[in-house]
């Protein structure tokens, strides 16, 4: 720890979002981070099969659909990451014996798909009005050949990078919720990346607040 970072020097990819993109679902959001676009729909609390009901909390189901439509093992991995993150964020104990389904559709992938999907999921959950402990923000970064840390890498930077790290932070104390990485990196690089991403997550939280304030005043 102990890496000093200045928030002002960061720039994330430009984010654009639209709520209620789907009219029939309980909550939906479409988010673009740079060129990467995902669409998330949240439905719930719903009636579900007796076998999958839990008497103490809602059952969360996450479905990830790729652009091609063919399910693969990599998608299951993404689903489990998103599911674990959502489970900590949603106050499921308020909706016992019910189900919540989150469906994520990849629309464009130009790097940083998973962090875009996570942020979009958070926005869709906010739109659906489900009770949550906190909001979460995902930030990705890459460690390049020289050991430098690049926030929100582009597709080319990501493929040439030595390692890719993704972090998800919660809004209360900016604690790490989820972290996953691929490739090889040093411990110091990991810690620097963590701190830089933590600082950059502020930008995502500010973005959430801006979006909510845009429509809150007219409803």
């Amino acid at each position: 720890m102990g890496v000093e970072v200045d928030t002002k020097e960061f720039k994330l990819k430009p984010m654009k979002c639209e709520f209620n993109f789907l009219s029939k679902s309980d909550g939906s959001a479409i988010l673009s981070q740079g060129e990467t676009v995902t669409l998330v729909s949240v439905n719930g609390p719903l009636d579900i099969k007796m076998q999958s009901q839990s008497i103490e909390k809602s059952t969360l189901e996450v479905l990830f659909c790729t652009k091609g439509g063919k399910p693969s093992v990599a998608d299951r991995y993404k689903e489990s990451i998103i599911k674990q993150t959502c489970e900590t964020a949603i106050l499921g104990s308020l909706y016992p014996r019910s189900g919540i389904t989150v469906t994520i559709q990849e629309l464009e992938d130009y790097g940083g798909l998973l962090s875009c999907a996570l942020n979009c999921t958070c926005l869709a959950l906010l739109n659906s009005g489900l009770a949550m402990r906190f909001v979460f923000a995902a930030v990705s970064c890459a460690v390049d050949e020289l050991g430098n840390i690049v926030l929100e890498p582009t597709q080319e930077q990501a493929t040439s990078a030595r390692a890719l790290l993704n972090f998800v932070f919660e809004s209360r104390n900016k604690n790490l919720l989820t972290g996953f990485s691929e490739g090889s990196y040093s411990e110091s690089a990991y810690e620097e990346a963590l701190e830089r991403c933590r600082a950059a997550s502020d930008l995502v939280f500010t973005f959430y607040r801006d979006i909510i304030s845009k429509y809150s005043n007219v409803i």
């Binding site: 906190f134 909001v135 919660e170 809004s171 959430y208 909510i212």
Partner: peptide, 14 residues
């Protein structure tokens, strides 16, 4: 984050 009456709030604010 701290919040007061009339503010736009997000989950996790107190």
């Amino acid at each position: 984050m701290k919040a007061s009456v009339g503010d736009v709030v997000l989950p996790g604010d107190y």
